[in-house]
């Protein structure tokens, strides 16, 4: 039973995909690390969610079930 060896094109694609995967992993780890730091330094959760979420004063009404 023999398999045909991978075409050079597939090796190139694999390399690109692994590179992209690695970059995404680094990005996730960075965001996770920054979040931990912000939590440890006492940054309020509202501030981390951005201004859009903190602009509306909380009235307690219309917040869903």
């Amino acid at each position: 039973m023999s398999f045909r060896p991978d075409h050079e094109l597939h090796r190139r694609r694999l390399g690109r995909n692994l590179g992209l995967g690695g970059a995404l992993l680094v990005f996730v780890l960075l965001v996770f690390g920054m979040t931990i730091e912000k939590v440890r330094n006492g940054v309020p959760a509202e501030a981390m969610l951005g201004e859009a979420n903190t602009a509306q004063p909380s009235t307690g009404a219309g917040t869903g079930p």
Partner: peptide, 15 residues
């Protein structure tokens, strides 16, 4: 007949 020369490798994007 797919043209394999037009696909860049990871190192091309790094460059």
């Amino acid at each position: 007949t797919h043209d394999t020369q037009t696909e860049a490798s990871l190192s091309d994007f790094v460059q």
